[in-house]
Amino acid sequence: MAETPDTAAPQLDAEALKARKRRNLWLGLALAAFVVLVMITTVIRLNTGIGVSERM
């Protein structure tokens, strides 16, 4: 008899879910911070002209 593959996701307890949510929040914040930092450097470079010529 063919076995049915177990495709069900593992059940996480409340503490594990809370930890995962917390990690996701930190990852989201880190990603947002990275985007902001790249934006800041880009704006400063465009306004001051630093490093623009040698990259183009």
């Binding site: 930092l37 800041i40 450097t41 400063i44 001051t48 630093i50």
Partner: peptide, 11 residues
């Protein structure tokens, strides 16, 4: 160095 650039370089 632009203060913001210096701060980002330090980071």
């Amino acid at each position: 160095m632009h203060p913001a650039m210096a701060a980002i370089a330090t980071l």
